[in-house]
Design a protein around this nucleic acid. Structure first.
Lengths: 122, 122
DNA sequence: TCTATACTTAACTAAATAGTTAAATAACCG
DNA sequence: CGGTTATTTAACTATTTAGTTAAGTATAGA
């Protein structure tokens, strides 16, 4: 998944990771703080792995403080993804224009049904 | 990957799929049109699969027109993701305030180095 | 009807993801 | 030093994802 943008979106495609970012948006937190809300659902190493995904995507920066690893959000890493989304904004904000446009071009299309497909066992 | 938001981000986490959306942002296109730029890198069924991921995420709507399947972008499906990102906007637009804040709290932290970790072969 | 075009599905495989448990490192603290 | 807390890593497994090829359906048109 080579490219940066894909890495960012992939990192965001998980509710646990998004929740961790939400927590970090309220301030720095170390690993066990971040893990606490999820320890009923998953182990600590699982949380470490999620954190690593966020780190590799640049979304989280980890530092060292004795045996703790304070983490903070790196908002800059979201900019690329936000910029990408931005170019599509017109496609969900066109509500009025779209309705207008739609009313001009009410061109219904046909429909059909399908049966079975594919191939037999090798 | 149950939730809608995760599904959206996961669908966006692939350059081929993003390129297909970019193409559709310029207008309706059928499957072979969409596939054309990728047929040197992958097969047509591979493209169909990518398209299905986009469809399941609601980002693309497919219709029927004789043997063709005209696809169009459904921008609305990006709104959820865009709204989610929006709440983090301050974290990449804070440049000035952040610098100001930073200059007030120059509190350097310690660092250290690590060796090997983990466990032996079972 | 026969054939070409458009697209999909099935069956399979390889690689990536997400989780696990056990063990290891690291730093503090009595 | 020895134990406790914080965190990571390794090794393993199961599931998902991304691709393949072969074969299927659907429609158009000579």
């Amino acid at each position: 998944m080579q490219d940066h943008l894909s890495q960012t979106f992939a990192a965001l495609a998980d509710p646990t990771r998004r929740a961790m970012l939400a927590r970090l948006s309220k301030g720095e937190a170390n690993v066990s703080d971040l893990a606490k809300p999820f320890l009923k659902e998953m182990s600590l190493p699982a949380v470490t792995k999620h954190l690593k995904v966020l780190e590799k995507a640049g979304l989280v920066k980890k530092s060292r403080e004795a045996q703790y690893r304070p983490c903070r959000l790196n908002g800059d890493a979201l900019k690329g993804a936000a910029d990408w989304m931005e170019q599509y904004r017109v496609f969900w904000e066109e509500s009025f224009d779209r309705l207008e446009e739609y009313l001009k071009t009410v061109t219904p299309k046909k429909t059909a049904k399908g049966k079975s497909h594919g191939r037999k066992k090798k």
